[in-house]
Amino acid sequence: MKGILPRLGRIFLKNSFKILSLLLAVSILSFVLVNASPVDPVQQYITGLGTAVSPEQREQIEDYWGADDPPAKRYVSWLSGLLRGDLGESAVYRRPVADIIGERFLNSFVLMLCAWAMSGILGFISGCAMGMYRGRRPDRFLKKICYVLSSIPSFWLGLVFLLVFAVWLGWFPVGFSAPVGVLSADVTLWQKVHHLILPAFTLSLVSFPNIALHTRQKLGDVLDSEYVLFARARGEGEWSVLFRHGLRNIVLPALTLQFASFSELFGGSVLAENVFSYPGLGSAAAEAGLNSDVPLLLGITLFSALFVCAGNMIANLLYGIIDPRIREVNK
């Protein structure tokens, strides 16, 4: 494959430019929204200090932050800080926003990765099973499950799982990412995994039905195609058709869907992490919102936009590598 790297580099550059302009738009929009909201960042900062502040001191704080400057000027100063890597300081945690995001994202990343892999693999396999048994019992059964799952809100499902598996059966802990009362250095890998299973499973069910039903539809289209008819005419059996033609033709759309599901994953993690009190980025986003922690909220908004864009870009790049129709034409 000569020239694949320069070509990928070109796509990467093009997409990076798109992502940067999108991030700029997101930053402007979220800044305008926060600005228009009744939230008073100065008041939140003072509340966060936990001590009484005299009106003069308050004035000084406002002066120091430029709270009375016109919005455009404030935006520019926030953006220039952003470009220098300074996302500000969280009003609730009293620590740099970038540190909090980095730390929380690591937790979330493990959770989302597990959920993502689980929903992808289970969804794809169930979708294939449904496609192969179209209209018959396994298909009808799995389809019902998919419909039920996609109509249940994930936080409610999380509560039910907690009730059944954590409270009644006692198989899993009720919340957090590690046992309470144990030093973080003493937490074993097994304990971490044990705390991860239930939230990851709940989160995986957010995108599972979507992937399964899409895969089912795609496989159905392939099985109805003329090239599969020809394969049957040449004596290929059901499994040969699936492995020789089916997977080859449905894996691309499935991969795209899988990477495009980053947005659902992030949205779902906000709910799942709250239900399970899991200390990830999603629960930080919820806290920041509820406590009007403006710097943290803006930071997470930008970060999640970047995260979703990265997913889409990976899907684009993969398509160019895997699909010969795109690969050969772009040569």
């Binding site: 090239y227 049957r232 005419a233 040449r234 004596g235």
Partner: peptide
């Protein structure tokens, strides 16, 4: 028929649509 397809009986189909686009 199942036994003979592709071994004793072969088909030459009509159009390019009978070829797998990704093979």
């Amino acid at each position: 028929q199942k036994k003979l397809r592709g071994t004793e009986i072969a088909l030459v189909p009509q159009s390019v649509a009978y070829l797998d686009p990704l093979m």
